[in-house]
Design a protein around this nucleic acid. Structure first.
Lengths: 163, 163
DNA sequence: GATATTTCTATGTCATGTTATATATCAAAT
DNA sequence: ATTTGATATATAACATGACATAGAAATATC
């Protein structure tokens, strides 16, 4: 069955990248499910940003993540519901709401950094290893590799192989 | 302001590709808006598939596009609402619903193929031109180029430059 | 100092993707 | 021929992205 997005080349590159991204996120989800916390894989960048940059107001968080502000407002509310982040008004500017990791959020991130993220990173790096040449070719190669061995299986192997 | 997805490298490649795909789609939308039809850029792959492969049942269309079947059911219903496709039961198998371009859909695709798609394809190709090396580097270069000159402006230039 | 403007966050609406499941039709098996 | 199972599509429920805009708070202007 012909893959139309691939056939269309540059014309539908946006759709194709979005599709690949969703695929990668879904596969990543399966790895993350080992942590018994019901956080979607798409929420981890926000947690990672807070881990890396410290508490941030909503707007700056949105900028760091490269998404629109309402998305951050909603994600933060969701994660606050789960008890992973706290949202507090800023001292000096009452308009700003500062998002920060809660104690549980801190624990989750630390555990993920130790137990899960390295194997994911390793699996994706392997997925993209030894690729060269034009972008479309590399994307096709990644799609083919993913079809042959899904990411979550690569991550398992990485975990087994790790010392 | 640090771009977290970029900093995280392989770990959040999925989120990053999804973000880039959405950006490209949004930019493409602005080019497509010249056609006075309210079709989202994400619907064009479906139309292009029908143009390229001819009438197809829902399931095969989903496979060709690499998306789940319910998405195609919904998109087809939407495009049928707009009068761009027709959905008819198959002769030999009453379970199957065959999706095909309507007369208006045919017209729209022909116009897009003539007036719009070439400039989009050209703009995206230019965006990705002269890139080499590892994937992450190429993605960063594309992000930088897009930030410098959005795709819709590249497409305009392409249109002006074309003979 | 009152008013106007700007800035920041929240909310409403929509688009589009997913999974799980219901429904309808076809095919197979007894 | 009737029942059983498989297959195709539709629907429901949910997640997450965008944009537009409302509301609150800060800042600027007069």
């Amino acid at each position: 069955m012909e893959d139309i997005l691939r056939s269309l080349g540059f014309l539908c590159l946006g759709s194709r990248m979005k599709r690949m991204g969703e695929q990668l996120q879904a596969d990543t989800q399966r790895v993350l499910d080992r942590l018994d916390v019901s956080v979607q894989s798409s929420q981890y960048p926000l947690l990672a940003a807070l881990d890396r940059l410290g508490p941030l107001p909503v707007g700056e968080l949105a900028q760091s993540l490269g998404v629109a502000q309402p998305g951050v407002t909603r994600s933060a509310a969701l994660l606050a519901e789960l008890g992973l982040v706290e949202v507090n008004p800023s001292q000096d500017d009452q308009r700003r709401r500062i998002v920060s990791l809660s104690l549980n959020g801190r624990r989750l991130v630390d555990q993920a950094k130790r137990d899960i993220w390295p194997s994911i990173e390793h699996a994706v790096a392997e997925l993209c290893a030894d690729l060269s040449g034009p972008l479309l070719g590399q994307l096709a190669a990644i799609e083919d590799r993913l079809a042959a061995t899904p990411l979550h299986r690569r991550a398992e192997n990485a975990r087994v192989a790790a010392p």
